[in-house]
Write a protein that binds this DNA or RNA. Structure first.
Length: 431
DNA sequence: TCTGGGGTCCTAGGACCC
DNA sequence: TCTGGGGTCCTAGGACCC
């Protein structure tokens, strides 16, 4: 029996399915939903996929399908999609009330089903959930079940492609031979975390299928790629490296950017635009109840117009006291854009990034009240640190204990069980 | 005066995801 | 003519500091 079981549940052609709930005339015909400015395709119905419309293609390249194939192209309505998403997520949370749920994106979530393994047939449960979601919000979904997140993603993928699964693929319940056969004919690019560039690099090494990748040595792959790839390989081998992220961690940055309808070359216009973007980003900042310590502004020429001179530049400004004051932020944004503006270029895109975010009203964190550690652990850590400094001097930690920061602190805190420091002979064991 | 190592921050870029 | 937006993580070099 596997140590953990994950399910990945996602909405098929999410935005198109949301639109279809309210407009049945869209059923059974090719439908796409377009990005802002009706620029690119961001969602496709299965019929649209069948006539060869690829994800992300510009609208003007597929417009002709409207006449030849009865294609319907819709502008996006994110308010609607996020409302539908909330209901979809709520049904799952209620259905699997013993499980931890991670909302991964607007249309998919992971659920940790380990607790259900013993007393339930997971395949039956998944079908029941699928039916309920269709009945209650009208959205068609697929479910993939596996012993790691990466495998549950793969299973979900398989469920979509193989009609006999009828939308639910429980990896654990499938015969090993059948699984292996499928792995050996599935391209490695289908794996979560393997994109275009990695696919190319892997092909050069003779790794073409998921089975090929699963057979590699994670440590070797870490050397050749990165720790991320090593984790992917291990996950394919059934070793769960990625946890469920129950509470979404606080955002690290807030972006507001747009491509302009028309190219802009005047500084004053750019300043006005950037002020609008700053207020938009600021609204999200307030909604999160955060303050911002750094604001970055960037401008772009049109990268598709190769005949034009290209220019990209960004500039960051630190806010002396992290703030959520829109006036201060807007002022800084104007300063920043004045910095990077150059005459003689036609700009097509600009944006604002708020970063160095922290919760509003939070006190500056001292070492030991940073995070909930219980008193006994705190005590153990304190005495261990005292012991270390007494025996080896402050220098042994590289820094005074009050100056422990960043990674060092994380590592200490993550390991502050009493026995961790018991073998001080081997000091420093921290690294 | 000699010198090293280890931090952080910034900038930039690359890769991935939905 | 028309080509999205919002995120994450990792790497690497240079400046600067202790």
């Amino acid at each position: 029996m596997p140590e953990r079981v994950f399910a990945l549940i996602d909405v098929n052609s999410c935005y198109v399915s949301c639109e279809r709930v309210f407009d049945p005339s869209l059923d059974n015909i090719p439908v796409v939903v377009l990005s802002n400015n009706d620029g690119c395709v961001v969602a496709r119905s299965s019929e649209a996929k069948l006539i060869g419309i690829k994800m992300g293609v510009p609208y003007f390249q597929i417009k002709h399908f409207e006449k030849t194939h009865g294609l319907k192209a819709l502008s996006s309505n994110y308010g609607l999609y996020s409302e539908m998403s909330n209901r979809f997520m709520a049904i799952i949370a209620y259905f699997f009330c013993l499980a931890e749920q991670e909302i991964y994106s607007i249309d998919e979530c992971f659920v940790l089903l380990t607790q259900y393994l013993e007393n339930y047939n997971l395949t039956d449960l998944a079908f029941a959930l699928k039916d309920r979601i269709l009945k209650w919000v009208g959205l068609p979904v697929c479910v993939g079940i596996g012993s790691t997140k990466t495998i549950s993603k793969l299973a979900n993928n398989w469920a979509k492609k193989e009609p006999k699964f009828n939308g639910v693929c429980n990896w654990l319940a499938i015969d090993t031979l059948e699984r292996d056969a499928w792995l050996s004919r599935t391209p490695v690019s289908e794996v979560w975390g393997v994109g275009r560039q990695h696919t190319k690099a892997l092909a050069k090494m003779g790794i073409h299928t998921v089975a090929d990748l699963a057979a590699t040595d994670p440590m070797q792959m870490k050397k050749l790629f990165s720790i991320v790839m090593a984790r992917t390989v291990m996950e394919l081998q059934g070793i769960s490296c990625l946890d469920i992220d129950k509470v979404p961690s606080a955002k690290q940055q807030i972006i507001s950017s747009r491509t302009f309808g028309k190219r802009i070359n005047e500084l004053q216009l750019l300043q006005e635009v950037i002020t609008v973007y700053t207020t938009r980003a600021h609204r999200k900042l307030r909604a999160d109840g955060s303050v911002c310590g750094i604001i970055t502004v960037f401008i772009h020429t049109n990268r598709f117009r190769e005949q034009d001179p290209q220019y990209y530049k960004s500039h960051s400004i630190s806010i002396a006291n992290a703030t959520d004051d829109v006036f201060i932020l807007a002022q800084a944004a104007r300063t920043a854009i004045t910095h990077i503006y150059r005459k003689g270029f036609d700009f097509q895109k600009a944006g604002v990034i708020l970063s160095s975010l922290s919760p509003k009203g939070a006190k500056t964190q001292s070492l030991f009240d940073a995070d909930p550690i219980d008193d006994s652990k705190k005590q153990a850590l304190m005495s261990a640190l005292e012991d270390i400094t007494a025996r080896f001097g402050k220098e042994s930690l590289g820094l005074g204990t009050s100056a422990l920061s960043g990674q060092k602190w994380e590592m200490l805190r993550g390991n502050c069980s009493p026995d961790y420091f018991s073998g001080l002979e081997g000091f420093p064991p921290v690294y």
